[in-house]
């Protein structure tokens, strides 16, 4: 059987998710035996215009040109994977949506802001259909491998829809709330093995919110620790601001 043709495309992002893949080391060569990478601008000069079996999209959509480009890629791709929070939920790029667009452009460009076109940041699925999601900022490599396997076997991949706390407790971490600080684990979807808490930090919500966040419970906790709701919403907006463009996303 011919190896599936795979291409990587980057939109507005830091390109850190592709680097996570480059960091696989020598096992990367085994992955490359299973797929045929036909386009990957960051590391290849080769280009490909034909039909793709798999398109892997990194980054969020925030220009009209990007909207056209992603639609074109969707049209010629059998399977489309959104990779990383920028692509799956808008990620940090969404913070910009908290500001009026001309205000933020003017702050950065001063009087020259009229040169620069910008629209609100959107995640990929807010523009085209996405078949597989690999959440995280950056992606968690074991999950990427799991998704790639699912794609190659043509079976669905179910993103965990329970909170980071579940993985965190399984790992035996001392809860940050017990250490006196607030953590977004209770409302954030798992799948990263509670990466940040395992490293002594809190969860910042980078994988997006669980579909049914126990908002009441979180508010109780927040009150108990005397934090303002504004503070928590502000924190959540670090990754999840784009959600309000499409609340079911």
């Amino acid at each position: 059987m011919a190896r599936p043709k795979v291409a990587f495309f980057d939109f507005s992002c830091c390109e850190g998710c592709q680097l996570q893949i480059a960091n696989f080391g020598e096992p990367l060569l085994d992955i490359l035996k299973l797929i045929e990478v036909v386009e990957f601008r960051e590391v290849m000069s080769e280009k490909y215009a034909g039909t793709l079996d798999v398109a892997i999209i990194e980054g969020s959509i925030n220009t009209t040109h990007a909207i056209e480009r992603i639609k074109g890629i969707r049209d010629r791709s059998k399977v489309l994977i959104a990779m990383g929070s920028c692509a799956t939920i808008g990620g940090v790029n969404g913070i910009k949506n908290a500001f009026p667009l001309n205000d933020i452009a003017e702050y950065v460009y001063g009087g020259d802001s009229e040169y620069f076109e910008s629209i609100q940041t959107m995640s990929v699925h807010q523009v085209v259909k996405v078949d597989y999601f690999v959440h995280g900022c950056p992606i968690y490599p074991p999950e990427f491998v799991a998704v790639l396997k699912a794609v190659l076997m043509a079976v669905p991949y179910d993103v965990p829809d329970y909170p980071v706390c579940v993985e965190c407790k399984l790992n035996g971490n001392v809860c940050m709330y017990d250490r006196g600080v607030t953590c977004l684990g209770p409302v954030t979807r798992a799948g990263c093995n509670a990466w940040c808490i395992g490293n002594g930090n809190i969860c910042y919500g980078c994988r997006g919110m669980v579909s049914n966040p126990n908002e009441k419970g979180s508010i109780d906790v927040i009150r108990r620790y005397g934090l303002s709701m504004e503070h928590i919403i502000n924190k959540l907006e670090m990754y999840n601001k784009c959600r309000e463009l499409n609340p079911h996303g």
Binding site: N62, I95, K96, F99, D103, I104, V108, S118
Partner: peptide
């Protein structure tokens, strides 16, 4: 594409 990091930091 514009990402406006400096602008986004204001108020945080």
């Amino acid at each position: 594409a514009p990402r406006f990091f400096e602008g986004m930091l204001r108020g945080r």
